[in-house]
Nucleic acid binder design. Structure first.
Lengths: 338, 338
DNA sequence: CAGCACTCTCGAACCGGTTCGACCTCCAAG
DNA sequence: CTTGGAGGTCGAACCGGTTCGAGAGTGCTG
């Protein structure tokens, strides 16, 4: 059942059916009614491929998805969900593209074969080939996070530097003097993963500013690594009384490590960091943390992308979010309090 | 840069270029070489829309995605990741479709507009309109879970009945006599959500078989609800010594509730259920549970779907998984042990 | 009544591929 | 020397839409 079939049954030409449906040219009320009736009877819907071929737009956005090798964090799920819904609300579909092992190939599929009108890039690095490449071919995309040269692009991101700094200040204000930082896996840090880098930067800077004794650690994205990491922390400096983490997946493990070491949260050890609210609430005591607004980030990214698609040539826009710290129960007075 | 351009530069016709690239007809070595060289030089890739229009296949699979209203569970993320990768491994893309508020509309987009060759349906209900509809129009799809009439379709799922039964037997063997079941949200149960229904069924049956005193609860998908649910359990029957849960998102809240009530896990309260390993490991003590093999489920679903697409008319196949219970640390002897 | 603008409709071209049938050439078998 | 088949190439049609230019009909003005 194609447009020709509809035209036949409605007794008009194919172009008239097209105009009746799109409204791009005036069509008599009588004709429009007949066409719509036939369309409804047959349940006709125009083929997406044909339409995409004809007018050069696929009405599909691409989401470049982190590989499954890295464990996913909960934040990503909320993010994806909100992107799907925001896209749907604007009559666009979302195509997932793994940026995994063979990332070139999937890039080729998305861009080379023109499957999508634009893309959203997750897992940004400070120096990011993909960003450079897309920028150089002028392909419309929005990054989730900032590269080292954020002024030149479209992006939505979190100010991890400021968030981690806020966490450190919070701990320092409470009287903690010896603090640790539990980062994302080392491989991510080394390859310039944005949040890991900027978070570390914020931690180092704020700790120095407050004159704290600070140690930094990398930790794989799972509970067992979190537990091991905590053991290293207490082994390296048993006098440590607080930590800041970016690592959602390790959180449960960190808590377990503390429990095993006999440290009570928040009584004799404080924990804080940057974590989606949903996960901060699963640990006991609930985590005092800067809540990652994943869903908002997804909506903003789609907004930006649609804006870029609708007005090509506009100068880049961006959103830098700095959510406040939600005080829950995982931080308490440190040794020098009072 | 379309196929005509390539043909021009290689000095052959468009059809020859097509055959040189697809290999569907013999082409002289000489010609093939020239075509490939031009293609490489220009970085030409055939347009996905045009190809889809011409041969009727989009090389795209649809994933009907649960709405964001329900909180996502961690299991879903692993699942999606593995589906994306399995699809990519077979040169297919994955299109996400929200099955949310306006599920008819997104269905229309996917099927009516022929954006995908086949689909994977999550969040199956025992009586599922979507399944009935797709079956009646003979659209190729694979369900994640079984409807009430599983013999007639293609699906991959978990045997929630058996898994929950195994949990109950495990608790009964340990000497627990008064147990509770923490299910997914009531709205899901009421609307016939498969895992909630079958899980409940397994629980009720096994508890009866073992002569246990059993209570069942519904619980929303978040930590606060888990905590509240646990309070209800202990309020309704303070002698309860164990629970079985399907609710990943509530797990942290359940543990918190237990801690607040002064019940030590596993010393004076046992917890078990059906949960993805990654989440079971985040709580302390780690959860003894049937590990939901989300990634495997995703791979299997893609395998089934591809098989169905490649051999239309084959009789339905399915996979019913019954993962074993992983003994971790959250269950211990009950009151009647020894 | 001619001229004109406006509304409505149609046919044809186009988007960028795939595929079918036909044709030509060359070589081996009869 | 004919015949036949295989290898290689081309043109044309097709997939299912959109869009442009033009023509038919109508009503209004000069």
């Amino acid at each position: 059942m194609n447009i020709g079939e509809i035209a036949l049954r409605a007794g008009v030409s194919r172009s008239t059916v097209s105009y009746a449906l799109s409204g791009k040219r005036p069509v008599s009320e009588e004709t429009r009614r007949r066409v719509k009736q036939v369309v409804d009877e047959l349940g006709y819907r125009p083929s997406a491929s044909a339409r995409a071929l004809a007018n050069g737009r696929t009405s599909t956005l691409g989401l470049v998805f982190p590989p499954a090798g890295n464990h996913y964090t909960g934040m990503q799920l909320d993010f994806i969900g909100s992107v799907v819904e925001a896209a749907a609300a604007r009559d666009h579909d979302l195509l997932l593209s793994p940026s995994g092992v063979d990332s070139d190939r999937s890039f080729q599929r998305l861009l080379g074969e023109r499957r999508v009108d634009g893309a959203i890039l997750m897992e940004i690095r400070l120096e990011d080939d993909r960003v450079d490449h897309l920028t150089s071919v002028d392909f419309p995309f929005v990054a989730i996070g900032r590269t080292a040269h954020p002024e030149r692009g479209w992006w939505a991101g979190l100010d991890h530097t400021a968030l981690v700094e806020a966490c450190v200040h919070h701990l320092a204000d409470l009287g903690h003097r010896r603090v640790a930082f539990v980062n994302r896996p080392e491989q991510l840090l080394r390859t310039g993963y944005e949040s890991a880098r900027r978070g570390l930067e914020g931690f180092t800077e704020a700790a120095a500013e407050r004159g704290l004794t600070a140690r930094t650690y990398c930790c794989d994205d799972d509970a067992a690594s979190g537990r091991a990491c905590l053991q290293r922390i207490l082994h390296d400096d048993p006098a440590t009384t607080a930590l800041v983490t970016l690592n959602e997946a390790a959180l449960g493990g960190l808590y377990r490590g503390l429990a095993e070491a006999g440290r009570q949260v928040p009584h004799d050890f404080s924990v804080t960091g940057v974590v989606a609210a949903r996960w901060a609430e699963t640990v006991t005591p609930q985590l005092t943390a800067a809540d990652v607004p994943a869903a908002e980030l997804g909506r903003l990214a789609v907004d930006l992308l649609m804006e870029r698609l609708d007005n090509p040539g506009t100068s880049p826009r961006n959103h830098l979010l700095v959510p406040p710290i939600s005080l829950r129960g995982s931080t308490g007075p440190g040794p020098t309090a009072l």
